[in-house]
Amino acid sequence: MSQASRKRGFEFYVLAAFFSLFVLFLYGPMLVIFILSFQGPTGGLTFPMRGVSLHWFYDLMTSGRYGDLGGALSRSMILGGLSMLITVIVCFFAGLAFRRRFWGASIIFYLCIISLVVPGILVGLGISQTFQILGLRLYWWLSGLGAHLSWTLPFGLLIMFAVLNRFDSSWEEAARDAGASAWKTLMYVTVPILFPGLIAVALFGFTLSYDEMPRSILTVGGSNTLPIEISNMTTTVTTPALYAIGTVTSVISLLVIGAAFASISIIQKRRARAK
């Protein structure tokens, strides 16, 4: 608003304060558990800090009290990776298809919306019961992966819609006009131009799967994923080990987010500037 840009009035400061408070509200608690996860061995769930140590991280790794956290972490990482890969590929092609009108498009679209709107645990119940009826056993890498895909695919498709909104299909025509086959058009033009958007889809694919809990509970069979382990810990663990695992998983998430943002901005900088 140009008026605001001429002179910063009273409202600016009120709104800026409100916004800052909101950001504090958003990050403050996370920062606090990050700090508290370095609590000394005698420290409790809240301040004061009784020394600074890595005791609770060590406790996580060595103590048997917390169940199979290492296994849960590796399962969650593998599921995240698989969901990411499948989501990117499936949603990329589905997004391309949705640029044209075809029979059944709205059925698939509404299935996606339903999957997002319906309580997650209900989808988990449905998938586990389907397996039951088919006489199949539940495995984290099969039924669990399926449950995660029911969550990541609809998101991925919606992101692809947004990504393709800014994609001009005359780029593909220009490639075909220059004699490129369908495959070469895809590899030389469509994928490279859409690459930053595909990274965004990958980010959603990984993090949504990595942090997914409600759909997983009934579908992973005997082996839990990390979010399920952590949610069990919330009611049983009363030491800062809870914060330590929180710090670990948040750091992993933040690394993934950071890597995604960094690669997107590197690509875009390269595109905007002379080589």
């Binding site: 590929i89 499936v90 949603c91 092609f93 589905a94 391309l96 298809a97 949705f98 044209r100 075809f102 059944g104 498009a105 698939i108 299935l111 996606c112 339903i114 999957s115 319906v118 209900l122 989808v123 119940l125 449905g126 998938i127 019961q129 389907t130 009826i133 399926g146 449950a147 895909l149 029911s150 695919l153 609809p154 498709l157 369908a182």
Partner: peptide
């Protein structure tokens, strides 16, 4: 040709959404 390739491109998505959302919700 475009319509055919549309179906080919959307087939994995359709298959997954039907088996992972459509059928399970009908079962529920």
């Amino acid at each position: 040709g475009g319509r055919f390739s549309s179906y080919l491109q959307v087939a994995p998505m359709a298959l997954l959404m039907f088996t992972l959302v459509g059928i399970p919700l009908v079962i529920v």
